[in-house]
Nucleic acid binder design. Structure first.
Lengths: 215, 215
DNA sequence: AACTATATTAAACAAATGTTTAAAACACGG
DNA sequence: CCGTGTTTTAAACATTTGTTTAATATAGTT
């Protein structure tokens, strides 16, 4: 079928520096501009090499994107799972998760917008629904919540709603920075400070609302 | 300069049905696919006419987009202002705003993602920062909040944080529908129900957190 | 050094893009 | 019904796009 198959299909995938360079460049460009917002040539140029080479390693813009996107999702869900599977109490898990999420997003502010946005572009987002769901489920977080609810330590609320509450309050403030700055006069440094203060509000608000046993 | 100026530059802008058709089509296409995600021809086709005609009326894809985008923002801020400038108490304003916002977003679910996303694409978003800020400021909502805080009816919190809390919890659940559905098995009808229940949680959580005088 | 498999490049390709041209269709007052 | 201004169209234009080709460079093995 393919006279020139991509490099990956052959054996020994020694971690060429070139492949990494392309992936890093693609990641940066895709994150900030989205799939449709950039060209293959732009990625190649960002990596400091030829257009043909990116297709030589990744076969097509689509293939390359899917690899980047799926890794972004892995990273994203992974950080969630990592905390859920500890032996902490729900309140501690919630607090630590929000703390870490704010810090993580301060370093990768384009990520949530990238993921939400590309997920809405029905194409290319052939996500394995059950894969991530199972990963989260296996942490036992759902049982832990149900138990807390039955012991009347936590309010009656759909687990999906809890996830929504958490992600809403962690991600939206980062995603909407430019929008917020265009309707309110907030310089960049001040927005960073705002986010720090906001984090404390979010933690207190969510803990107080979800749990009946106040600390 | 222009041998063929756009129609609008001449006098009498009688509301041609054609111009409206183009705008409606452009709105639908831009909202769901974004500026970079669609072509001029796609818009023309959606309006059922020629490509040249959309440029005849709007000069360029960019010009057309900016008109759509700025109207979207007007609509968005307008609905906010409309509630702020009533004579209700803060708690009532907050409750009604969230109610209305959830209903509005149920009808226009693409809008928040569209606005956030295009605002992040630094180009084309030459928003008049002060214009919208003044509109909101003129409602007196800031003074009302400061007064409530001084009377110890409301917690000490930055006004920007309050706006963030509200928008986060109203918009993110709508924007992230596809993402949520790809990490949790939630069919469409169930997601609508989830949103209804979520709205009640958001109202109760925000009212309880922001205001000290419980109802 | 010659052979071979892999890496890299410049050039080409067809399709799609935003925009413009020039001509046709339309409306309508004289 | 002719003339004039507006609306609509098909076709062209120059660029850019994703992808492929074919040729060159770079190693590594015998």
């Amino acid at each position: 079928m393919f006279k020139f198959a991509a490099r990956k299909t052959f054996g020994l995938t020694k971690d060429t520096t070139t492949e990494k360079k392309i992936k890093e460049a693609a990641k940066a460009v895709f994150y900030s501009k989205g799939f449709e917002g950039c060209s293959s040539r732009e990625i190649a140029q960002a990596a400091g090499l030829n257009v043909a080479l990116v297709n030589y390693y990744f076969r097509s813009k689509n293939k390359l994107f899917q690899e980047i996107f799926s890794e972004a999702l892995d990273e994203f869900i992974g950080s969630m799972v990592q905390i859920f599977q500890t032996e902490l109490s729900l309140i501690e898990k919630l607090t630590i998760f929000i703390e870490k999420e704010f810090d993580f997003l301060a370093r990768h502010p384009e990520l949530p917008n990238f993921i939400i946005n590309e997920t809405n572009r029905d194409e290319n987002c052939a996500i394995d629904e059950s894969k991530y769901f199972n990963k989260v489920r296996e942490t036992g977080i759902f049982e832990q919540m149900k138990l807390a609810q039955s012991k009347d330590e936590m309010i009656e609320i759909d687990i999906a709603s809890v996830i929504l509450l958490i992600l809403s309050n962690c991600q939206y403030p980062v995603m909407s920075k430019n929008f917020m700055q265009s309707i309110m006069p907030i310089p960049n440094e001040q927005y960073a400070l705002l986010l720090q203060a906001h984090k404390a509000h979010v933690i207190e608000m969510l803990v107080n609302y979800l749990f009946k046993t106040k600390i």
